[in-house]
Design a binder for these strands. Structure first.
Length: 574
DNA sequence: GCCGTTTTCGGCCCGACTGTTTTCAGTCG
């Protein structure tokens, strides 16, 4: 079992206890423990075997016992008992919006229903509205929710959500009554997938804003609408929540709507101990009519005696404690990035020429770029053979010589073949200033074989960075499996950087693994993997994931000046 | 069930909206 399996069992226990009607705080304890395990990069089984389970926050004796039992037997008594008592199908009903544990329990007890299909039948034959506490509206909502679930599964990748949210924000910003508007929620925190989009508007006159929001052409259905809050579903199935507040409380409201839930629970618990109360309306002391802080997030954190916590770190892990002790990292910012070391041109599968990419890089204020087209193994991308690479190196040198404002490095994204050898003449690779090595084939190797494959590539002495190191596609395929510790340690030893690839489909490494790579002493590089001039913008997503990983500019190779970067590369490549 | 700047007991965030009620429970974020 891997960490996700352990976390899933704990979450199922929590959900089943909710339906059964257990102690709310006991239920939360199981949810918290599941979250701790999910965010753990080290294998939980290794931690169990060392006897260090209760060192993890949220895991005490009781939950540790269940986890140990799972390690030994593959399951635990508590989980088995709950499943024997309740139907496992109930867990799928928990995904239906508007149905919580109480209503599911009522439906189960009264009608014996524990799966979506029977629920649909019962709703369509109007058995649901007969139940006490249920009515016509609830019944209709259940049917439409079941339709939606059948159509539209799961969460949206961050980049897609960002583009949709940006367009909605820009439309609402045009309104006279909108003072300011921000995208909040998990999108602002940079979560790699998004459940729904949250928009926050500061206004003195909220009704026209809600009216305009409900009337946007993108909107399919209005789910709810009150004085301060409207929720809609767009034609593409995505839910968007709009909240309006007075400008005086925009800061505390923005903090509230940015989340996460866990961050709020932790922060409010701490504030309560200090005799303070936090809500979206501000921080309050004894006088509950006038907030001590509300206008800006900075003011709110100041008032609580905390350093400003960037949205990307607000996950309710240890950020509050670190903010209280002035120990938060100074996260890397877009302005720290001095160049981009992963991009493609018309020579292979890019849409812009070297000159066009260079021109855009200069507009972006970069000091350097590396051109890294594919090697021949990637046939679909028209990868280069040795002769073509030789010519491209010359072309890059020529353009670089004519360009004073930007240093253009000759590079390549060379394929790591099945056996770990590199798909290019070694002499030519040594001639390149910058070599990204990536896996584009044979994803299904065993973890042992994949580990050996990557280690061999790193040990070649020719590679500067490992490109999109897990190969995962967001919402598509999982990454290939290998021993992260071995590969990251090897990369650290040989001064090979690990890439945080910002390309919209990838975000690879993800934040958790990037943090782990850093912890193992490996250097990181943030790349856009641009296939067009506009693609260079995608570096933004890589930066955001680096921030979620808690990384500072010092840990990131392309935050060095061009001179220092070249000097470093010269020293480290053999 | 977990945890501790009120530490081994007693507390665990806070408010908006809806639907089904006649004052509020349930759900959501």
């Amino acid at each position: 079992m891997d960490n996700r399996d352990y976390a899933r069992v704990l979450k199922e226990i929590a959900a089943l206890m909710q339906i059964k009607g257990g102690n709310q705080f006991r239920i939360r304890a199981f949810e918290n423990a599941a979250r701790t395990i999910e965010t753990q990069t080290e294998s939980l089984e290794a931690i169990i075997d060392r006897g260090e389970l209760t060192d993890l926050s949220g895991i005490g004796k009781g939950i540790a016992r269940e986890l140990q039992q799972m390690r030994q037997q593959g399951s635990c008594d508590l989980h088995r008992e709950l499943l024997a008592e309740l139907d496992p199908g109930l867990l799928t009903l928990m995904k239906i919006q508007g149905l919580g544990p109480k209503r599911i329990k009522a439906i189960y007890d009264e009608l014996g229903i524990a799966d979506p299909e029977s629920l649909r039948q019962a709703a369509e034959t109007h058995q649901i509205q007969q139940l006490s506490g249920f009515g016509k509206k609830t019944e209709e909502k259940i049917v439409s929710e079941l339709d939606r679930l059948a159509r539209n599964q799961g969460r949206i990748p961050l980049p897609r959500a960002q583009s949709i949210a940006g367009s909605l924000r820009d439309q609402l910003r045009e309104l006279d009554s909108v003072d300011s508007i921000e995208i909040a929620g998990s999108l602002r925190r940079g979560r790699e997938t998004i459940g729904d989009i949250d928009l926050l508007v500061a206004t003195e006159d909220s009704e026209p804003v809600h009216q305009a929001f409900r009337s946007l052409v993108e909107v399919e259905e209005v789910l709810l609408s009150g004085d301060t809050k409207t929720s809609v579903r767009l034609h593409n199935g995505i839910q968007v929540d709009l909240r309006t507040v007075e400008p005086e409380i925009f800061g505390s409201a923005l903090h509230y709507f940015t989340g996460s839930k866990e961050h709020h629970v932790a922060l409010r618990t701490r504030a309560k101990r200090q005799g303070l109360k936090i809500s979206e309306y501000g921080v309050f002391g004894e006088d509950e009519s006038t907030p001590l802080a509300s206008r800006s997030e900075q003011q709110l954190f100041d008032c609580l005696g905390l350093d400003y916590i960037p949205p990307e770190l607000r996950e309710g892990t240890d950020e509050i404690e670190r903010a209280a002790n002035a120990r938060l990292p100074r996260l890397v910012e877009p302005g720290d990035i001095r160049g981009d070391l992963h991009m493609h041109t018309t020579e292979t599968d890019g849409r812009a020429t070297i000159e066009e990419m260079a021109h855009t890089a200069i507009e972006r204020g970069y000091e350097f770029i590396a051109i890294t087209d594919h090697s021949q193994a990637v046939r679909v991308a028209n990868g280069m053979n040795a002769q073509r690479l030789g010519e491209q190196i010359k072309a890059i040198r020529r353009i670089d010589d004519a360009c004073d404002e930007l240093q253009i490095l000759a590079g390549i994204e060379v394929d790591i073949l099945k056996d770990g050898s590199l798909d290019m003449d070694h002499q030519l690779l040594a001639e390149c200033d910058w070599v990204v090595a990536s896996v584009h084939s044979h994803f299904g190797l065993s973890a042992e074989a994949m580990t050996e494959r990557l280690v061999r590539a790193i040990e070649s002495g020719l590679v500067c960075a490992l490109g999109h190191p897990t190969g995962r596609i967001l919402g598509g395929r999982d990454g290939y499996s290998y021993d992260f510790q071995t590969v990251f340690d090897c990369a650290a030893k040989h001064d090979v950087a690990l890439e945080i690839n910002g390309s919209t489909g990838r975000l690879d490494l993800n934040a958790e693994l990037a943090a782990y790579a850093h912890q193992r002493g490996a250097r990181l590089v943030i790349g856009s993997d641009a296939h067009s001039c506009r693609g260079l913008d995608d570096i933004h997503f890589g930066i955001q994931q680096a921030r979620r990983a808690g990384l500072e500019a010092e840990s990131i190779l392309n935050c060095l000046s061009a001179d220092r970067l070249l000097k470093t590369l010269k020293e480290t490549r053999t």
